[in-house]
Amino acid sequence: MQVEQMQLIDGKKVAAQIKQEIAAEVKNMIAAGKKQPHLAAILVGHDGGSETYVSHKVKACAECGFKSTLLRYEADVTEAQLLEAIAGLNADPDVDGFIVQLPLPKHIDEQKVIEAIDYRKDVDGFHPINVGRLSIGLPCFRSATPQGILTLLERYNIETSGKHCVVIGRSNIVGKPVAAMMMQKSYPGNCTVTVCHSATAHLKEITRTADILIAAIGRPEYVTEDMVKDGVVVIDVGTTRLPSTTTKSGWKLHGDVDFEHVAPHCSYITPVPGGVGPMTICSLMKNTLLAAKHEIYK
């Protein structure tokens, strides 16, 4: 059976609306004599994906009326030099929030870098203090991709309370935080959450019971038609670049879901690209605004 009315969740459209809302708020802040929000980013090396993400973030800052600073380092930067740059941003009163674009070169300890960031400026929501506060439902900077997912569910008025949400993937960036958010006693949330991963037995039997399926495993087209039930809401977090002869760039972005065959069974589904991706950057902008207003940490 196929669902009669499948609706595409347009992350690009929602992100554009939210950026307009942020820009209007920033205009009012500046008119009231308040400081312009300022987001900084540290980019190490020349990874294609990271370059693209950071350029999108700089562009989004301009759209939202933020000031942005990009600090670039070559791939051979030492850990000590990077930690020094982070200390500088922590101490700069003009910088409201900053991010260190991941992944980092192998000789740098990512966890050490994350923990060096002042949690009050950690707009990526990766610092253990923000992660811990998230897990017990306290105000914090929420990890951008999971927050983007929840915003999409909210903007499309998708019912979540009492639903079975299955998350495929247990990363610290998406899987774990989105599972924590979806089980909180709030909307969107209040779900019964199952987290599946590479060692999960009987995966298909579990995913077929999902009312909401969040695929964040990083394997292209991993979720197939026989893994979903009719009427499911599918959120595809995957962004794998695969070679393509049909695009100018020579590559094409693929999600974790076999969209063509899964979509007909869904009540709602996010496309790749244009689904969760634009919302991630949008959530980062929202976190920066919160940091500038000192709404979470006074």
Results as ranks from 00 to 15, higher is better:
Val95Thr: 09
Asn190Thr: 13
Ser143Met: 14
Val123Asp: 02
Ile99Tyr: 03
Ile212Phe: 07
Asp230Gly: 15
Ala85Cys: 03
Lys163Leu: 13
Ala80Thr: 14
Val54Pro: 06
His127Gln: 01
Val44Leu: 03
Ile86Leu: 05
Cys165Asn: 13
Ser249Ile: 12
Ile158Ser: 13
Gly48Pro: 05
Glu84Ala: 15
Thr288Met: 03
Val233Met: 05
Ile18Gly: 08
Lys27Arg: 11
Ala291Cys: 10
Gln81Pro: 03
Gln111Trp: 10
Gly169Asp: 08
Lys229Tyr: 14
Asp256Arg: 08
Val257Met: 07
Asn28Lys: 14
Gly175Ser: 03
Glu225Asn: 11
Val77Glu: 11
Glu84Asp: 11
Pro93Lys: 12
Met183Lys: 15
Asp122Pro: 07
Ala62His: 10
Leu290Cys: 09
Ile212Ser: 03
Val234Ile: 06
Met6Phe: 06
Lys121Gln: 03
Val123Gly: 09
Pro128Val: 00
Glu21Trp: 05
Thr209Leu: 14
Tyr187Phe: 09
Val257Ile: 10
Val77His: 04
Lys229Ile: 11
Thr145Cys: 02
Glu154Gly: 14
Leu242Val: 15
Glu74His: 08
Ala91Leu: 02
Lys176Leu: 12
Asn157Gly: 09
Glu110Val: 09
Thr240Ser: 15
Gly65Glu: 08
Gln7Arg: 03
Pro273His: 08
Pro105Glu: 00
Ile42Lys: 00
Pro273Leu: 01
Arg170Ala: 09
Ser161Asn: 10
